[in-house]
């Protein structure tokens, strides 16, 4: 493939991907614009969205895939458990929990020396 063709086709790919993603947002806006937030239907939508996102986050943390694939399971679960501990036991905010989880992960990453050995 010539440089020129690559240059043109990448914009077609980006445009098609943007449109393919926007489709869901536009559809959601059209369907739900007349709903009341306390209606049964919109509360069900919220439940489905929460479940999708929880499944998505759990997948990122538990399954060995993407950039975190090389990180052992425990090295991800211990920082998350520390963050939860700060939130549930010490009644701190989600921001504090995130900082604690992040710093725990950094400490473990440095201790293990990922990619260095």
């Amino acid at each position: 493939m010539t440089q020129d063709m690559m240059g043109v086709s990448i914009w077609i790919i980006v445009g098609a991907s943007v449109a393919a993603t926007y489709f869901w947002r536009g559809l959601g806006m059209i369907i739900a614009s007349r709903l009341h937030p306390d209606s049964k239907l919109s509360r069900w939508f919220a439940c489905v969205a929460y479940a999708v996102l929880a499944g998505f986050i759990a997948r990122m943390l538990i399954l060995p895939e993407g950039s975190l694939a090389e990180v052992p399971l425990l090295d991800k679960l211990i920082p998350v458990a520390c963050g939860f501990g700060v939130i549930f036991l010490f009644k701190r905010t989600s921001e504090t929990g995130t900082v604690v989880a992040f710093l725990t992960f950094v400490a473990i990453a440095l201790w293990r020396g990922y990619g260095v050995a």
């Binding site: 993603t21 869901w24 959601g28 009341h36 489905v48 996102l53």
Partner: peptide, 18 residues
């Protein structure tokens, strides 16, 4: 890409009523 981002449907449905 569309399949990977399909969660935007329930997410938009959940906040639009507000």
């Amino acid at each position: 890409v569309s399949v990977a981002n399909a969660r935007f449907l329930p997410m938009t449905l959940a906040i639009t009523p507000y």
